[in-house]
Design a protein around this nucleic acid. Structure first.
Length: 233
DNA sequence: GCAGTGATTTGCT
DNA sequence: GCAAATCACTGCG
């Protein structure tokens, strides 16, 4: 808490960030199917108050992973064989961070969805950096002033930029006011998204569950995708 | 640009 | 023992 006092534009009591709507998303936001929660997360704000100060980004790319109750089950989801010690967060209440280690050196972060007892989540794949860019660059092993796209374009890049790890952040309830990790309404109406297949998986590769802000410079992967535009209410 | 590949830990079968 | 929701570096065109 005290480390953030003096951060320009940041109110540590309300999480209001200057020029950004700081209203925290309630648990009910997440208590729905991942394929519906995922596009609604586009344009929202991820904020982390950690040892390097306040780091903030706008969510520009996500993927939905469906729970084992889905028909057919999502073979690419960590939860598809039921609860295990690793994925237990996914079967708990919605609105919790599921952070896992991958390929030995990286982490990925998800937000759990669905009511308690049902697993389903949204993988955060890319952010547009908004605050704490120098800290992000340092965390990523880059020099301050590095291109924004190199900071948080990719699921493990964004974890590295924010300093998120399985040991420290898995299971955090992002709907609690005292959580160091917050998801905030960006005050930014997203009316259209591009839907594409998911990236980096070998099962159910053609399921249209990746959602991006079309044309945003901070989206990961190739510039052109086979996808379709969808209107968001 | 882009395809190929090594790094290296964790969890599950 | 192996596969993994990845990244960055290399070499080649």
């Amino acid at each position: 808490m005290s480390t953030m006092q003096g951060t320009p534009g940041f109110d540590s009591e309300t999480w209001e960030i200057k020029n950004i709507s700081g209203r925290r998303l309630p648990r009910a936001f997440y208590e729905d199917a991942p394929e519906r929660v995922a596009p609604r997360l586009l344009g929202k704000i991820l904020a982390y108050r950690g040892p390097h100060g306040l780091v903030v980004g706008r969510i520009v790319e996500v993927e939905a992973y469906l729970g084992p109750h889905n028909t057919p089950p999502d073979p690419a989801a960590h939860s598809h064989r039921g609860p295990t010690p690793r994925n237990r967060v996914l079967f708990g209440p919605a609105g919790h961070a599921y952070v896992y280690a991958i390929y030995g050196r990286y982490f990925c972060m998800n937000l759990s969805c669905e009511a308690e007892g049902r697993a389903g989540c949204v993988l955060l794949r890319a952010l547009e950096p908004l605050a704490g860019l120098d800290a992000m660059a340092t965390n990523r092993g880059l020099t301050p002033g590095a291109a924004a796209k190199l900071l948080t374009s990719g699921p493990s890049r964004l974890c590295q930029a924010l300093g998120l790890t399985c040991a420290e952040h898995n299971g955090l309830d992002v709907t609690r006011a005292d959580s160091p990790l917050q998801v905030l309404d960006g005050g930014y109406a997203v009316t259209e998204a591009l839907v594409t297949p998911r990236i980096g998986i070998k099962e159910a590769v053609d399921w249209p569950l990746r959602f991006v802000l079309h044309g945003h410079a901070c989206v990961s992967g190739p510039k052109s995708f086979t996808g379709r535009r969808v209107q968001l209410s």
